[in-house]
Simulated assay, not measured.
Amino acid sequence: MPMGGEACPRTPELARFLRWADAEDPDLAMGWRLLAATGMRRGEALALRWRDVDLDAGRLAVRRSVGVVKDKGAGQRLVEGPTKTGQARVVDIDDDTVAALRAYRAARASLAPLLVRDAALVLATLDGRHRHPERYSRRFVEQVVQARKAVGEDQLPRIRLHDLRHTHATLLLAAGEPVKVVSERLGHANATITLTVYQHVHPGMGREAADRFAALLEG
């Protein structure tokens, strides 16, 4: 949940942060935009490969996730495996995110062709490796702190990286997107999980449903 009891950013706040991040560090900003636009989990985004992304069709396939495994007395290592539910899913992406990915891919290709091979990680480090999930989250928090100083603390709530996923779901549900559609985008095992986690999003939904039924009944 959001840090310090603050709400997830609303649409203008999120847009403001993404614009700031893109001007500050386009490489990191692509990751933040991708997470916000798809609702992917951190590990899923960091395991995404270019062969999973179809820019012409405007969709991507979430097939795997990367996480940190800590071995007692032997440090830690990054391990790639299946998604949390063990199932792959396809997520549609909007035109602005497609355009951002095209520009990001072109910029990466100018640095090193190996960074845009089909098997290459979309959000790889410059040497083509997985980014460390925990360090990636810390980098996001650092950027949020910097952004709040730059644009005004009242213009952006304090958020964690995972809150981008919450924001994605919250904004869609509040806008009336069907729970099943949101659930599929998030990769929840079923829509019941989505309903349980986000039942707070629109407390008046039950009343609106009752009013709609009455209107239908009256013709």
Rank of each mutant, 00 (worst) to 15 (best):
residue 61 A to F: 07
residue 130 H to W: 15
residue 132 H to N: 15
residue 143 Q to G: 15
residue 68 V to E: 14
residue 130 H to F: 15
residue 103 A to W: 00
residue 161 L to A: 07
residue 173 L to N: 04
residue 102 R to I: 06
residue 121 L to C: 10
residue 125 T to C: 04
residue 63 R to Q: 14
residue 130 H to T: 12
residue 182 V to I: 06
residue 67 G to Q: 12
residue 94 D to I: 01
residue 173 L to V: 13
residue 150 A to H: 14
residue 80 E to T: 11
residue 127 D to G: 02
residue 78 L to N: 09
residue 66 V to F: 09
residue 86 G to A: 08
residue 182 V to Y: 05
residue 110 S to T: 08
residue 120 A to G: 07
residue 174 A to Y: 03
residue 93 I to V: 13
residue 156 L to H: 03
residue 88 A to H: 14
residue 126 L to H: 13
residue 78 L to C: 11
residue 74 A to C: 05
residue 122 V to M: 08
residue 74 A to G: 02
residue 150 A to T: 14
residue 140 F to Q: 03
residue 154 D to H: 13
residue 170 T to C: 03
residue 146 Q to T: 11
residue 184 E to M: 05
residue 181 V to D: 00
residue 141 V to N: 08
residue 126 L to I: 09
residue 117 R to G: 15
residue 71 D to F: 04
residue 142 E to M: 04
residue 122 V to T: 06
residue 173 L to W: 09
residue 158 R to G: 02
residue 75 G to K: 07
residue 117 R to K: 15
residue 142 E to D: 10
residue 115 L to K: 11
residue 113 P to K: 12
residue 62 V to W: 09
residue 182 V to F: 07
residue 183 S to F: 05
residue 158 R to Q: 12
residue 92 D to M: 03
residue 108 R to W: 00
residue 72 K to R: 14
residue 70 K to L: 04
residue 169 A to L: 04
residue 74 A to K: 14
residue 133 P to M: 10
residue 100 A to G: 06
residue 97 T to Q: 05
residue 93 I to N: 00
residue 91 V to E: 01
residue 123 L to K: 04
residue 118 D to C: 03
residue 128 G to A: 13
residue 140 F to G: 02
residue 180 K to Y: 03
residue 117 R to W: 12
residue 79 V to S: 06
residue 85 T to Y: 04
residue 157 P to G: 00
residue 174 A to Q: 15
residue 70 K to P: 01
residue 169 A to C: 07
residue 162 H to I: 03
residue 59 R to N: 03
residue 76 Q to T: 12
residue 89 R to D: 02
residue 130 H to K: 09
residue 157 P to I: 01
residue 87 Q to A: 14
residue 166 H to N: 10
residue 81 G to C: 06
residue 59 R to S: 03
residue 152 G to D: 08
residue 162 H to T: 03
residue 148 R to K: 12
residue 155 Q to W: 00
residue 141 V to D: 11
residue 167 T to G: 14
residue 120 A to T: 13
residue 83 T to C: 07
residue 176 G to H: 03
residue 160 R to A: 15
residue 172 L to C: 07
residue 171 L to F: 05
residue 73 G to Q: 00
residue 183 S to E: 08
residue 100 A to V: 01
residue 135 R to C: 06
residue 104 Y to M: 02
residue 139 R to S: 13
residue 167 T to S: 10
residue 150 A to V: 12
residue 160 R to S: 15
residue 160 R to T: 11
residue 155 Q to V: 06
residue 183 S to R: 07
residue 101 L to D: 03
residue 140 F to Y: 12
